[in-house]
Simulated scan of single mutants.
Amino acid sequence: MANRVERDEELVGAVDPADDGMMRAVVQKRYGDADVLHLARISRPGIKVDEVLVRVHAAGLDRGTWHLMTGRPYVMRLVLGLRRPKNPVSGLDLAGTVVAVGSGVTRFQVGEEVFGFGKGSFAEYAAAKENKLARKPANISFEQAAVVPVSAVTALQGLRDAGHIQPGQKVLITGASGGVGSYAVQLAKAFDAEVTGVCSTAKTDVVRSFGADHVIDYTREDFAKGTQHYDLILDCAGNPTLPRLRQALTTTGTAVIAGGEHGGNITGMSRQLRALALSPFVHQRLTMFASTQRGTDLEQLADLIESGKVMPYLDKTFPLERVAEAMRYLEAGKARGKVGITL
């Protein structure tokens, strides 16, 4: 099976030896829309010395899984597989229980509850590198924990690492009702910033519930034409032009472009690249970033969740066999916060 990898000879712990080594998983044999996703029975993955095997209780759905499904922008295929996915199992986010560990793993033991980044999480079992996991916060469910990793880490790195957020700053979050935006609003508040969220009319209430100090309904008001100017903009959605972002910034403000689905099919980053080219010639700082999967960031997020400063907002869950339907729900822009997959 394509999903099987070489097993570590010194595997510690094991799943039930009476089973047949197979599992249910959502797979795709080619790139395309949600119709390429289907449920299949395949061999359970093996793990390497620095990996753990997780019995998946829940998985998260995000725009990253959409990109993996479609193979767009096309530059991603240089890594994912030119004609078809190298790993046919979909999914990145997961939460579950460790059932086996590689001989080099020191941070986790069999039986521990974890969350983080896996290799094909839309399955009953998934392999994950030790340094891309953290212990699940005790005060949230597996379903909530599963929708944290990709979106919350992106929001954290966008604000902290790329945006250099400081207490007291005025921060604007576009796409504030979405996956990344829902965490960005809460994290910016945790960093003691004054936060304005941008969203549609139907989602203003949920953005306020995230803790936003102000909410802009983009169907009625253009954030770039208001009297308020922002020290930091985290642009998660909407694809505002660079002139509009600059118009909304203070004279020395920073705009971090974290998303945008209209950056071209080749690189997907045309607007980001224009921002980087322009930034050296203006007083404002225009930048972008690519999020990195790090267990240390998951640990920081777990602390914030356990303290109550950040909480996953789970809009809707779908069972494993309805992943294609969940993807269509995400594509339609209906989600408020995050969408989860349950096993």
Score class of each variant (00 low, 15 high):
residue 257 I to E: 02
residue 250 T to Q: 01
residue 260 G to V: 06
residue 254 T to R: 06
residue 262 H to L: 11
residue 228 Q to R: 14
residue 239 N to F: 13
residue 239 N to L: 11
residue 230 Y to S: 03
residue 231 D to K: 05
residue 248 A to E: 01
residue 256 V to M: 01
residue 245 L to K: 02
residue 248 A to K: 03
residue 231 D to A: 06
residue 250 T to I: 02
residue 249 L to Y: 12
residue 245 L to I: 02
residue 255 A to P: 00
residue 235 D to H: 12
residue 265 N to L: 14
residue 267 T to C: 06
residue 264 G to F: 11
residue 245 L to G: 00
residue 233 I to F: 01
residue 257 I to Y: 06
residue 234 L to C: 05
residue 268 G to F: 13
residue 230 Y to K: 03
residue 235 D to A: 10
residue 229 H to R: 15
residue 245 L to Y: 01
residue 251 T to N: 04
residue 256 V to E: 00
residue 262 H to W: 14
residue 259 G to R: 12
residue 257 I to M: 12
residue 259 G to F: 11
residue 231 D to P: 02
residue 264 G to M: 13
residue 259 G to V: 06
residue 257 I to D: 00
residue 234 L to A: 04
residue 248 A to C: 02
residue 232 L to A: 01
residue 257 I to A: 03
residue 239 N to G: 05
residue 237 A to T: 04
residue 229 H to K: 15
residue 256 V to P: 00
residue 237 A to W: 07
residue 248 A to L: 03
residue 258 A to F: 04
residue 238 G to R: 08
residue 263 G to S: 14
residue 254 T to D: 00
residue 246 R to D: 01
residue 238 G to F: 10
residue 237 A to M: 05
residue 261 E to H: 15
residue 268 G to H: 12
residue 235 D to T: 08
residue 255 A to E: 00
residue 228 Q to S: 11
residue 238 G to N: 09
residue 241 T to M: 03
residue 237 A to Q: 05
residue 252 T to I: 04
residue 249 L to T: 09
residue 234 L to M: 09
residue 266 I to F: 15
residue 253 G to N: 07
residue 233 I to V: 08
residue 262 H to M: 13
residue 243 P to A: 12
residue 265 N to S: 15
residue 263 G to I: 14
residue 237 A to I: 05
residue 257 I to Q: 04
residue 263 G to N: 14
residue 267 T to E: 07
residue 242 L to I: 15
residue 264 G to W: 13
residue 228 Q to L: 10
residue 235 D to I: 06
residue 264 G to Q: 13
residue 264 G to K: 12
residue 232 L to V: 03
residue 268 G to S: 12
residue 244 R to V: 03
residue 257 I to C: 09
residue 263 G to H: 14
residue 262 H to Y: 15
residue 242 L to P: 09
residue 230 Y to M: 06
residue 234 L to W: 03
residue 263 G to F: 14
residue 228 Q to N: 08
residue 257 I to V: 10
residue 255 A to Q: 00
residue 241 T to W: 02
residue 249 L to H: 09
residue 258 A to C: 09
residue 253 G to T: 08
residue 268 G to C: 14
residue 259 G to I: 10
residue 230 Y to Q: 02
residue 253 G to C: 07
residue 230 Y to R: 06
residue 247 Q to T: 08
residue 258 A to N: 08
residue 259 G to Y: 12
residue 245 L to V: 02
residue 260 G to W: 12
residue 234 L to Q: 08
residue 268 G to D: 11
residue 233 I to C: 00
residue 262 H to S: 15
residue 228 Q to I: 06
residue 259 G to T: 07
residue 246 R to N: 05
residue 248 A to P: 03
residue 235 D to K: 08
residue 253 G to D: 04
residue 262 H to A: 15
residue 238 G to H: 12
residue 263 G to A: 12
residue 245 L to D: 00
residue 267 T to W: 12
residue 240 P to Y: 07
residue 263 G to W: 13
residue 230 Y to T: 01
residue 266 I to K: 14
residue 244 R to K: 15
residue 263 G to V: 13
residue 251 T to L: 08
residue 251 T to A: 10
residue 230 Y to F: 13
residue 245 L to W: 02
residue 232 L to C: 02
residue 250 T to N: 02
residue 255 A to I: 00
residue 239 N to R: 14
residue 236 C to M: 06
residue 228 Q to E: 09
residue 234 L to Y: 09
residue 258 A to K: 06
residue 249 L to M: 07
residue 244 R to E: 08
residue 263 G to K: 13
residue 256 V to R: 01
residue 243 P to L: 09
residue 230 Y to P: 02
residue 252 T to V: 09
residue 229 H to Y: 07
residue 235 D to L: 07
